[in-house]
């Protein structure tokens, strides 16, 4: 394997991790506020189709990204109204959101099947991208990839360094106590759900605007579920979400590479490797029950209704 080939594989790893990073970080914030939204897959698909339609009709990838976020936020509001205001069961409503997203995206994407756009191009950072090896590895990516990394720092800072993050975590820990202290539990959960949806939408849009710049039905290929699993197995810690996303990306790419090299091993079994290995690794590094309890939102999935 040549040096250029290895660099290319690593770059592909980074890229294939981006949808997971967006979606999982978004869901992490939602779950930290105590809401379990299982509709990530649906929101990603809505984001993917809306982003693609936006980019095709306006010719601007940037407008596509905005539309992806807006559309995902809109469908997530259905979930939010049902679960937060009307106290519907979060698990069932989240599943319904996914099914709804699959159907709706297929429906509105029909006329755009077969359209192509020029995907988002890498943006070489001046000077830094000229460094040998490190340059192409780290400083020659598309802007959305940089945005994903920035989102990691942003979310970590928000959750653990800002007062807003402290309030959000307190609500996920005990909504009764937070309510008693005078925090608007429901309003903050609405905002968290909307943020999670915007991130999920961006993750979906990365698929249709960058990775494979076109629209196909079900093009997320269950990445929404992987993002959900990542959050849990990463025990609600942003840094571990990143480790998990990259690990998953790397194994996906290794799998493609092995197949292109004609490795004679069941391709179906090989395809399970990323799912399997990512979960094993995250479980192993998060073994300590006390640490899990320290990071897991205790009120996750519990409905909240202010009594007086």
């Amino acid at each position: 394997m040549s040096e250029a080939e290895i660099i290319n594989l690593i770059v592909l790893t980074f890229k294939s991790a981006v949808p997971l990073i967006f979606a999982a970080l978004g869901e992490l914030v939602v779950e930290k506020s105590g809401v379990l939204n299982l509709g990530v897959e649906g929101m990603m698909l809505i984001g993917a189709v809306a982003g693609f339609i936006g980019a095709v009709t306006t010719g601007s990838i940037f407008v596509g990204m905005l539309m992806a976020m807006a559309a995902a936020v809109l469908v997530s509001l259905i979930f939010a109204v049902l679960t937060l205001s009307l106290l519907a069961n979060q698990v069932a409503t989240g599943l319904a959101l996914t099914i709804f997203g699959i159907g709706l995206s297929a429906f509105i994407g029909k006329p755009f099947l077969g359209n192509t756009i020029e995907g988002l191009q890498p943006w070489a950072i001046p000077l830094l991208s000229d460094i040998p090896i490190l340059g192409p590895l780290l400083f020659n990516h598309d802007p959305m990839l940089y945005l994903a990394v920035a989102a990691f720092f942003g979310v970590s800072w928000f959750l653990y360094r800002s007062r807003g993050g402290l309030i959000l975590r307190s609500i996920g820990e005990s909504h009764e106590a937070a309510h008693a202290l005078g925090y608007p539990v429901i309003r903050i959960r609405y905002l968290a759900v909307m943020f999670g949806a915007a991130m999920g939408g961006l993750g979906g849009a990365y698929l249709s605007l960058v990775l494979t710049p076109q629209w196909q039905e079900d093009m997320t290929a269950q990445r929404g579920w992987i993002a959900l699993a990542l959050v849990v197995f990463a025990t609600w810690r942003p840094s571990r979400v990143m480790i998990g996303a990259w690990l998953f990306g790397a194994l996906t790419i290794v799998n493609f590479y092995a197949q292109s090299q004609g490795v004679s091993f069941s391709s179906h079994l090989l395809a399970t490797l990323p799912y399997f290995a990512t979960i094993i690794v995250l479980v192993l590094i998060s073994w300590d029950a006390a640490k899990i309890r320290l990071h897991a939102p205790a009120a996750l999935g519990k409905p909240f209704h202010a009594s007086d």
Binding site: R163, L166, R169, H295
Partner: peptide
């Protein structure tokens, strides 16, 4: 009080 937060964080809230 919130079990998983520190005393300072709890007081701040």
């Amino acid at each position: 009080l919130f079990d998983t937060l520190t005393i300072a964080e709890n007081i701040s809230l």
